[in-house]
């Protein structure tokens, strides 16, 4: 089954490499991995989709927690969460097919973000299932190029992940060094 894990980490050079290296080294099967900024400056957020059983998911969480730059890890698989993926799909068009493609896009509440005489780009946002099914609908028209972000996840309301330590002052120690260690971006 698929597990959704969220990890927060210090935004330092090589941190993505540390995490991905550990996952490869320990032979974990990761379906998708997405990295971005979080609400806290200096802290990045990663969303993982892990394929495996409960024991594998448990091990991924524990091994992630051992990476020194990782500040927190949550398994949100069983939480109420908003799971989304964004896809940009370039579909071949002819004058005959264009309106049909646009209708499909509309049904999926996807947007057309670029059009020319030979193709158009559909921007779809939704769960992976929804994105998958739109892609299957569009495939017969000819997909020239496609990119997907992988899953991002945010818990609903009170289901917010319970991070023990809010990493708001991670540079406290550094700041005592004349306050200039990591620049003024905090």
């Amino acid at each position: 089954m698929q597990y959704t894990l969220v990890a927060w980490m210090r935004d330092k050079p090589g941190v993505l490499n540390r995490v991905s290296g550990m996952l490869r080294r320990r032979n974990f099967n990761i379906d998708s991995l997405q990295v971005s900024h979080s609400e806290t400056p200096g802290i990045s957020r990663m969303t993982f989709v892990v394929d495996g059983d409960e024991r594998v998911a448990d091990q991924v969480v524990k091994q992630l927690r051992k990476v020194v730059d990782v500040t927190a890890v949550e398994d949100i698989t069983n939480r109420l969460a908003i799971l989304r993926e964004l896809a940009l799909i370039r579909v071949r068009t002819t004058p005959e097919t264009r309106s049909e493609i646009m209708q499909f896009a509309e049904i999926y509440r996807a947007q057309i973000v670029d059009v020319n005489s030979e193709n158009l780009v559909v921007q779809a946002v939704g769960t992976e299932d929804k994105v998958d099914s739109l892609i299957e609908l569009l495939r017969p028209f000819g997909i020239d190029e496609m990119v997907r972000t992988g899953r991002v996840a945010l818990c609903r309301g009170d289901e917010r992940p319970r991070r023990k330590k809010q990493p708001t002052s991670i540079f406290k120690a550094a700041a005592s060094l004349n306050g200039s260690l990591h620049g003024d971006d905090e």
Binding site: V67, A72, K172, N178
Partner: peptide, 15 residues
Amino acid sequence: GTFRYDFDINLPGFE
């Protein structure tokens, strides 16, 4: 550079 060694270690991810 300036050397001091009296700061507290603050590694929120290290338990």
